[in-house]
Design a protein around this nucleic acid. Structure first.
Length: 457
RNA sequence: GUGGAUGUAGCUCAGUUGGUUAGAGCACUGGUUUGUGGUACCAGGGGUCGUGGGUUCGAGCCCCAUCUUCCACCCCA
């Protein structure tokens, strides 16, 4: 029984046009990764479960695709967990591999595993698919491509400066204007939590704060209260709910707000360092903004946090993100390795470029010239010209079957092939090729040499 | 994981309070046109109405379940 052809939810097929467009974005990003000195690596599509589990928080664990063990996995299953319907325990006993959830954790694993072969600071880029068992919705897929660049083994803030320039360079190349690079620092968030005496609730505090633009001041307060953060504590940081002004004004506000927090002061210094550097080297098209509510996910960020917002007219979540993590490799046993990195969300950038109509026209180019197939002798005659054209990288092809001309012409038309060559008995006799311009309908007979010259300029 | 919408031809969709043989446009195939595509005209093929159950004399339409896709939440690129 043939089942209906389909693909799993949250996955996609790509047409050749879509592939070309994706390639266009990838090659742009890749070009800049290279010019900034990053080297490519790749890691497996799936990892050992314990490499991934517990690295993204409870929510993250839920979203990791687990791979069922091969063989008679039920024999080795945790019987007790099965009895108690404890899915978490059971799954760890029947699954020991999982699809990768992002590129950062496998990278950390890679660094620890290959530490003796790596020269630090290590700058690597990685463009691969990652998998999340999420419910698909706009701009959200279960298989998608991340383009990451990270530096590990240096705590220099110049890296943060360079990553901002890298973002700017890529979006400038893609002609995507109006992108905002939102920046924050985990130390600022720690400082705020410290100032209000809720350091132990840092995660709850930041997650709630992150929703400010979505659920508003009242919503955030409500969520904080629900998480057990006191009303007076919330009052203490009230100014950040109306955190406006330019970068410097925001810094000034933070200085007064975080006067009593050592870690907060440290965060401010880091932000100021980056700001001063970028003042001297202005960005080309991107806007840099300080957003203290920015707390996006990743539990391991310890310093800078970045998030990229698409231009305002496009309704799309973040199209990239990143930050510094002082101790990512610590989980795998390698201490004192500071890393900082950024990620481009290829699939979302694609949607944004599509919506704003920013893909260049030439992406759709196909075969330049199609040779009509009139029969065996004629095909051979055509192929002589075709190999010559191909030798100069002019894409050309022979229609494979000797079918009705109308069908062959229609085929060329459909595929937007700009030229067709008709070469039958009379052309062979005169040693010419009848070249037809599909747009104008114009036809001219050329010798092989002339034909070649026609496409060579 | 929670909530809402959705599913009819390859695609986009119409289909009346439940009533004979389920339609249109586009696409496809053939012809008008035997070595000339796009436009036009003519003809043709193509459907288990997502799937399974139920109500009914009768279901594309009503009910239940399930799956898909989309949207929002959690979370996130």
């Amino acid at each position: 029984m043939a089942s209906k052809a389909s693909i799993p939810k949250g996955t996609r097929d790509f047409s050749s046009l879509e592939v070309s467009k994706r390639q266009y974005i990838i090659s742009t990003i890749q070009k800049h990764f290279k010019t900034f000195g990053f080297k490519p690596i790749e890691t497996p599509t799936f990892e050992n479960s314990d490499t991934l589990m517990g690295k993204y928080g409870d929510e993250g664990d839920r979203l990791i695709f687990k791979i069922l063990n091969s063989g008679d996995y039920l024999k080795k299953a945790n019987a007790e967990a099965y009895e108690n319907k404890d899915s978490v325990k059971l799954s760890s006993s029947i699954s020991e591999k999982a699809l990768k959830y992002d590129l950062t954790v496998p990278f950390a694993r890679y660094v620890v595993q290959h530490q003796n072969e790596i020269d630090f600071p290590f700058k690597r880029y990685q463009i691969q698919n990652v998998y999340r068992a999420d419910r698909p919705q706009k701009g959200r897929f279960r298989e998608f491509t991340q383009c990451d660049a990270d530096v590990i083994g240096s705590d220099s803030l110049w890296q943060e400066v360079e990553f901002i320039q890298l973002y700017d360079a890529v979006f400038t190349s893609l002609k995507l204007e109006g992108v905002t690079i939102k920046m924050n620092n985990r130390k600022i968030l720690s400082g705020l939590a410290e100032v209000i005496g809720e350091s132990d609730k840092l995660i709850d505090f930041t997650v709630a704060l992150d929703k400010l633009d979505k659920i508003g001041e009242e919503g955030v307060k409500k969520e904080m209260l629900e998480k057990g953060i006191s009303e007076s504590a919330i009052d203490n940081i009230k100014p950040i709910f109306n955190f406006t002004g330019d970068f410097s004004q925001k810094i000034d506000l933070l200085i007064s707000l975080l006067a009593d927090s050592e870690i907060g002061q440290k965060g401010i210094e880091e932000l100021q360092f980056i700001q001063r550097a970028l003042d001297k080297m202005p960005l080309q098209t991107a806007k840099l903004d300080l957003d203290v509510t920015l707390a996006r996910g990743l539990n391991y960020y310890t310093g800078a946090i970045f998030e990229i917002s698409a231009p305002e007219e496009v309704k799309m979540g973040s199209i990239g993100g990143g930050g510094r993590y002082d101790d990512l490799t610590g989980i795998f046993g390698l201490k004192n390795m500071s890393g900082v990195g950024i990620s481009f969300g290829l699939d979302r950038i694609y949607l944004v470029l599509e919506e704003l109509n920013l893909f260049p026209q030439e992406i759709e180019e196909t075969t330049k010239v199609l040779f009509i197939n009139f029969g065996e002798k004629e095909a051979l005659y055509a192929l002589k010209a075709i190999s010559k054209l191909r030798g100069s990288s002019i894409s050309s092809e022979l229609y494979p079957d000797t079918v009705k001309m109308k069908k062959q012409m229609t085929y060329a038309d459909r595929r937007n092939i700009p030229y067709v060559v008709l070469a039958g008995g009379s052309e062979i006799k005169d040693e010419v090729y009848n070249l037809k311009n599909m747009k104008t309908g114009e036809q001219n007979k050329f010798s092989l040499k002339e034909l070649f010259a026609h496409f060579s300029d």
